[in-house]
């Protein structure tokens, strides 16, 4: 049966009111989206046998969960930010961070929305004050949350970033379908592009499956 314009607008209006109040006051969507990505990284590692804990910048168990809303330094954080520590038996531990700079092959620092790197590199960075290097990175996920169609240049940017990070486990996560961006990224075997739409269980499972594969490889080889 065709929808009635007035009726559907009235129904949308009743739901929009309370949600809009929250949207105006709340944190930007992409901050939450990055936190969700870090959560998926932590869950996928735990799913394949890792022990995962959330720590603060003093490497103590986090009692509050604070994340970056703008890119920052792993070495000199301005606040007590939270990261995940990932431990597989008999392997060097890893850390997962949101919104930190990583130096690429070009020596140029790049903002990574979510990155997993070896803990010994993170420790070296904390004591020296330098930027983490691309070599000890296991994977990085870039999060694109758009209310309008995701621009094609995001695909080009992502490939450039992934190239400079040595094609090491680059994953592009988008909140919507964008065929040309996906086609571009998937034309390179070492990069992945997936849709992660909020509230979509199938999307979440696809992302977890991909992340589990990367952690399983680490568990089996110890290589980043």
């Amino acid at each position: 049966m065709p929808i009635s314009t007035n009726q559907i607008l009235a129904e949308i209006g009743t739901r929009l009111g309370p949600l809009a109040k929250d949207v105006r006051q709340s944190t930007k969507h992409y901050d939450l989206y990055e936190a969700l990505t870090l959560g998926l990284v932590a869950k996928s590692a735990a799913d394949v046998g890792a022990t995962v804990g959330f720590l603060d910048t003093n490497l103590k168990q986090a009692t509050a969960y604070l994340f970056r809303s703008s890119p920052g330094s792993l070495a000199n954080p301005g606040q007590n930010f939270t990261h995940a520590e990932i431990r597989f038996a008999n392997l060097p531990p890893l850390e997962a961070h949101a919104g930190i700079w990583i130096a690429g092959k070009s020596q140029v620092p790049h903002e990574c929305d979510c990155v997993v790197l070896r803990k010994d590199e993170a420790d070296a960075v904390r004591s020296s004050g330098r930027t983490p290097l691309w070599g000890p990175v296991l994977l990085h996920a870039e999060c694109k949350y758009y209310t309008k169609p995701i621009p094609f240049w995001q695909g080009r940017n992502f490939l450039g970033l992934t190239l400079d990070l040595g094609w090491k486990g680059g994953i592009l996560l988008m909140n919507q379908d964008r065929a040309n961006v996906t086609q571009l990224v998937r034309s390179r075997k070492m990069a992945s592009a997936l849709r992660l739409q909020p509230g979509n269980t199938a999307d979440r499972q696809d992302v977890l499956k991909l992340l589990r594969r990367k952690f399983r490889r680490y568990r089996e080889t110890g290589d980043v």
């Binding site: 929009l16 949600l19 809009a20 929250d22 949207v23 709340s26 944190t27 930007k28 969507h29 901050d31 939450l32 989206y33 936190a35 969700l36 959560g39 998926l40 932590a42 869950k43 959330f54 509050a64 969960y65 604070l66 994340f67 970056r68 809303s69 703008s70 890119p71 920052g72 330094s73 954080p77 301005g78 606040q79 930010f81 919104g99 949350y145 758009y146 209310t147 909140n175 919507q176 909020p198 509230g199 979440r204």
Partner: peptide, 30 residues
């Protein structure tokens, strides 16, 4: 994306990381 997304992401977060339930997530510019 703009209006429904944030609420749906919080729901996803609780399923993915149950340890975060009954806490607040905080966001700050570094």
């Amino acid at each position: 994306a703009a209006v429904c997304g944030p609420a749906l992401i919080t729901s996803d977060l609780l399923e993915v990381v149950p340890a975060w339930s009954n806490h607040s997530l905080a966001f700050a510019a570094d």
